[in-house]
Design a protein around this nucleic acid. Sequence first.
DNA 1: ATTTTAAAGTGTAAAAACAACACTTTAAAA
DNA 2: TTTTAAAGTGTTGTTTTTACACTTTAAAAT
Lengths: 227, 227
Amino acid sequence: MAPKAYYNIHPKFHVAVDCIIFGFEDGELSLLLLKRNFEPARGQWSLMGGFVEEGESVDAAARRVVAELTGLSDLYMSQVHTYGAPERDPGERVVSAAYYALVDIKKYNRELVRAHNAFWVKLPDVPPLIFDHGAMVRDALRFMRYQASVKPVGINLLPEEFTLTQLQALYEAIFGQAMDKRNFRKRIASMDYIEKTGGLDRTMSRRAAALYRFNPDKYDGQSIFKI
Amino acid sequence: MAPKAYYNIHPKFHVAVDCIIFGFEDGELSLLLLKRNFEPARGQWSLMGGFVEEGESVDAAARRVVAELTGLSDLYMSQVHTYGAPERDPGERVVSAAYYALVDIKKYNRELVRAHNAFWVKLPDVPPLIFDHGAMVRDALRFMRYQASVKPVGINLLPEEFTLTQLQALYEAIFGQAMDKRNFRKRIASMDYIEKTGGLDRTMSRRAAALYRFNPDKYDGQSIFKI
DNA sequence: ATTTTAAAGTGTAAAAACAACACTTTAAAA
DNA sequence: TTTTAAAGTGTTGTTTTTACACTTTAAAAT
């Protein structure tokens, strides 16, 4: 395609993606963060990011970048916001789109994570991050909470089969507040798209707990939780 | 700032903004759209857009672009989503951030709008738009509805002083559903940040209607309407 | 002057959703 | 055999939401 005058009087910028990768363990949300052993900002903490390449959509770049770190494709991901302040990256002008991803924390590729010098950090322990990555985390958490209140995305943080106790702990972590066990279970019982598998979990307690799964065929877009 | 190797192995792209400009008139939402008398896509309908310039934030570009068309700064604006498919603009690669803006439709600069060959089009009459602008409108409407359900942004579509009948018609237009007058007025009465000005509107009915205004000092972030 | 008209304004009751609350069951471990 | 720790289970009061219809006002028409 020949360059056109009405485009080329305008500047071009690097376009990047930064990924807020959420996991869930021990009743708490965690983020997968890089302790950067590369430039720029070597030695500081940051989100996993990367540049959008020729012929690659911004969404695809976000998936690629998460897969480079975790080995996981097919994650639940969602664009959060785009950050475009001219000095947000002090090195060069970079416009960055933030995406959040939800990972079953049992499944990621440990070698890749080690090779990137990345670590799971529980949310309250997240250190100061480079550039505007702290704002990205704040905005991603807010947006993820909203989405979790509106559709069952949170389930992507759990294994395919989970107990109601795990599910409740997950929602308590997402919304940061305790919930009543009976009311919670009543609510879940009314969601026919969360169904018993018939299996039992015997690892978490003396008494075996019924396992449940999300059935996407039965899910029709109905809202889940009030925030 | 000297170019750095770790940036310059990556491509750069044009970064644009496209603006979904909402107005409200005759009980219906409208969009301010361009019938393009310039390239590219001359003769087709599009959103108002423009490129992000050197040293300009993406947010500032969106405000500039809306001000170029309407003469209005200080509008309520919010970023919606960024569109980054490689072929979304068939001319050259352009990554575009969409923003919505809320305009009091009595106030815009008519000369500027005429000069841009722009027109207010009621939502149900919006014609097919170029590129992915149709998707931008759909996403902006969804996001604006969400924000209007959560905070009183809709008020930016009305004059500073408004009657409860106008306000109800506005929310009916935003959410696309009729509301009960008494229940609506009860709800508004419980929002102390929507207060009587003492003034009366005599233009809309035989019986004068009390005028109200939004008092931002009394607004503390509480949620407004269930969607 | 009187009547008509069109929008402004106002309360109650039933239904639904939500929140609070404590004990029994199970099976492994001691 | 007893202890323990988590799984599992219903009811009631409170709050929120919804449904519903007539009176008031003042301009315009007669």
